[in-house]
Design a protein around this nucleic acid. Structure first.
Lengths: 199, 199
DNA sequence: CCGAAAACTTGCGGGTCCCGCACCTTTCCA
DNA sequence: TGGAAAGGTGCGGGACCCGCAAGTTTTCGG
């Protein structure tokens, strides 16, 4: 990888990181593009060469994380069933086993899901991720992303499960382990979300 | 309902309708807030008293449609299972039985899901709808939207299924009946999305 | 029916955003 | 090593969105 591309990636990371950090610190409305650019050591004009909006810069790291999940699903051994692979890949990312998740990530998600101006872009990012996840699933199941409804359906359902689990975790009063919630959500989805018996 | 509220609702409808129509006709970038306001017979400033952005105005009708779905789930007879109710409510909205769906709606969805500046707001709107749907499901299943993961999980899964079905329908080359796709998607989700046997 | 209060509309002004364009600097590669 | 390609920057402008302070319409109690 040449110097050129390395610098670009570095600048991109610096910008998205600065955007997220500043927005968490002061609130989105108190952060100008100018501030983000300054914090990353580039001109304001350059900011918009990398991201087309503040929101996109902030959600950029969320996208990276999601890509990682799709990648992991792809790497899982074929001896597993699809749902086993998905569950394991998801847990590898969300089950922190005892310790708390990265506080920076927590603050980021909390910001993106609460600030009205960010929610849309956040969901859009999730949607992009689901597209990649669908590709991975299509590969695994030998289905066709364009012709078959199946891979996108699974990807969307998985995305929904993780989203709900995360949201529940963020608002739960005594915050239990996030991994457990993700497992619970995915298991229920894979079981067809049977109506709870009103015993 | 007083004269005041009636007029307000009328203005709101006029604005969102004008926004959608103009955007479909000329493309989003060739429509100014000024144009929308003019088409609805109010001042530009008034536009932003009703909607906080062009995107919100356009997606407003999508929200209305979604609310209707949640409402219908609520009204279904309790003799049905939850999934029966959901399926019937969804089909009542999406199965046009033979005839083609409202071309205005089709154009609207196509616009909202293709124009980058609208996708975020579109998903945000869907998310709002899912929240209401979750309430309806919680009511039906005597679960708690805040404490239990179940109702939101179902709502999100249903939203995902409808979204995928719609998207598939929009891009399918010989466009089959939308109702069939929605039925198929919801049925698969309710069955736990079993991995297709690689027969 | 009336008059004040409440609600809505509108114009103005300003801060911000985002992009096209042209110019300059840096990196690449033959 | 020198031209080509790509990235960074400043300028300028169109558009957006909101606060504010009138002005106007609807409401409602007496």
């Amino acid at each position: 990888m040449g110097l050129r591309e390395r610098k670009k990636l570095e600048t991109r990371r610096a910008l998205s990181w600065a955007a997220l950090r500043l927005a968490v610190e002061r609130g989105l409305d108190n952060v100008l593009v100018e501030d983000i650019a300054a914090a990353a050591g580039v001109s304001p004009r350059t900011f918009n060469n990398y991201f087309s909006s503040k929101a996109e810069a902030i959600t950029s790291r969320h996208v990276d994380r999601g890509r990682h999940l799709a990648e992991q699903v792809r790497r899982r051994p074929r001896t597993e069933s699809l749902w086993e692979s998905i569950l394991e890949a998801a847990l590898a990312q969300y089950d922190t086993g005892g310790t708390l998740p990265d506080p920076e990530w927590t603050a980021g998600v909390r910001l993106m899901t609460s600030e009205p101006a960010l929610i849309g872009e956040f969901l859009r990012a999730s949607s992009m991720i689901e597209r990649e996840l669908a590709e991975a699933i299509a590969e695994r199941t030998r289905t066709d992303v364009r012709a078959d409804i199946y891979p996108r359906l699974v990807a969307a359902a998985v995305g929904a499960a993780i989203e709900v689990a995360t949201d529940q975790w963020l608002t739960a009063d005594p915050p239990g382990p996030l991994g457990d919630l993700v497992r619970e959500a995915l298991t229920q989805v894979a079981a067809g979300l049977p109506e709870p018996s009103t015993a």
